[in-house]
Amino acid sequence: MIRRETITEAMYNAIRLGATKMPPDIRKALQKALSEETDPMAVKHLEVSLRNADLSEKGNGLVCADTGFPMYFIHAGAAAQVEGGFGVLKSCAEEATARATEECFLRPTMVHPVTRKNPGNNVGPGMPKVEIFFDREGDGLEILAAPKGGGSEIFGTFYRMMFPADGEAGIKKFVIECIKDACYAGKVCPPAIIGVGIGGTADLCMSMAKKAALLRPVGVHHSDPEAARLEKELYEACRKLGIGPMGSRGINAVLAVNVDVAVTHTAALPVAVNAQCMVGRRWIARIDGKGNIDYTGEMR
């Protein structure tokens, strides 16, 4: 039985670490990008950003001050038992988020969409976002906390319902145009990780795009060969745009293009794009069946 307190603690630490550390795969990808860029401004953008991440790791500052939308993605083992039942995960996420905000690891950024009233703790209807996946085995919980950046969400979200006749050409045209627009003047803080959802319903399509952007290590391709082929072709195309870090002249508009697919209606071709900013914030807490917590920036 995993205790409620343990879960709250794990979520709090995961979101705190997410806000203050750069995941190792992201850092490596940014360093590679730095080695490729030649324009002085492009180089400077990356140098400054990597140094900023160093400063935050050393002094408990933030990787970026806009800690964005608080999101938790949870993998529950088939035999996992949670004190009070799985419904408490939502309350745990609220407590963890409020505490991290109180302690200035998260900026109080969530407001009512119409009145713009700010509760001051990032907690309200729908937020923090909690999503649970049930695994076929195991008895623990794996909690990935992602403070999802504002700029990348605000300027990097696109959806289009196309039709079967629009074909692969339509998918590619849409994605490359979205990326060009999202990177203009550095709006999504490039080099971005681009998630692309193809198929499903509108909500599933966007959800796939978000997860493809947030939940995959940089450099890992989809197991579906068609999806993987699209990823590679789109990634190469992005590098020819002439857009680099923070929208400067350069090569690395993106660190990766991650595609996910779902079956869809025979008359439909929905495509969604969601960007993750260069800091790629996410950190993981793994709780085993006995309640021991382990924190890591490495994804499985």
Binding site: A169, K172, K240
Partner: peptide, 17 residues
């Protein structure tokens, strides 16, 4: 910069088929 990127689009689209 945006104009430069736009001018590269036809070539990029061609490479994507």
């Amino acid at each position: 910069l945006a104009k430069e990127a736009q001018s590269r689009m036809p070539e990029i689209e061609k490479s994507l088929g």
